[in-house]
Amino acid sequence: MTEDESRRVVAEGRRAEALVSALLVLASLCAAAFVVLYVVHDDTQLLGLALGLTFACLAVAAIVAGKRIVPQETAVEERDRLLRPQEVEEVDAIVREGGEGISRRKLLTSAAVAAGLSAGAALVVPAASLGPSIGDRVRETPWSTGRRLVDRQGRRYRPDDIEIGTFYTALAEGANPNDLGSSLVVVRLPEEQIHLPADRRTWAPQGILAFSKICPHAGCAISLYRYPLYQPTSERPALTCPCHYSTFDPATGGKLLFGPAGRALPQLPLMVDRDGYLAARRDFPEGIGPSWLRIERNPPGESQ
């Protein structure tokens, strides 16, 4: 049967030969066009077209040649036997013979394992140089009593700059704007709509609320603000993260309305300083940024 299965057919493909020759000529033309275009008119579309068609012509030529010009053959190949039990035994014996005459086998093995593990640990330890110890670094933010809120150009915010119905990005004055603790999203709500917990009553002067801009879910910047266009039927104002759509309620101090975030959006206590600028009343009372093992939640005395 296997004999029957093997066949060799020599094709007589005059037309195929002509076609392949034509395709090869076309491929050279396209390749030449690519070179010329590269020199005179560096256009992405035309370059892509020229090079892509070069490859396309060569591809069709190779496939036609493989199917129509060269001898067509169906062959049968026997598979090797993979498992040879005798050789397995021999290998086993060779390995064993190497250990002949060793009497304290257990001792040697344990010592070798211990040496291997400690040498491995010694080699791995330098990986710790890759980063600082986490310590309290995540807890640090640039905010402290009196730190002013500025916009991206460094201009300080006054309460009058914050209008109802839109949101503002604010940064800590003088701080690195990319510091996760620095950026805030600031909104103003009509004061009668704000329902902050009792211990946060003073945090929103003139109805202005500030929250960490970094979503406590996955660290993206909160940059969507839903504000009711028609009060009676629209949904309440909400801050939303565009990555996974965690939705927070500014009116209640950043509580989660919907989505995957495991914590409320951290709120920064605000005040208006003596010169009339918006400033932090003090630092965030809780951790900002994505949750991790020791993220601070519901800090003492701030529980709702």
């Binding site: 396309a56 060569l58 069709v60 496939i63 053959e73």
Partner: peptide
């Protein structure tokens, strides 16, 4: 046969990706 066809496939993949 197979070498030519497989080279053809390589070129076809390259062609599609460049296009």
């Amino acid at each position: 046969g197979y070498a030519l066809r497989s080279i053809g496939l390589l070129l076809a993949v390259a062609s599609v990706l460049v296009l």
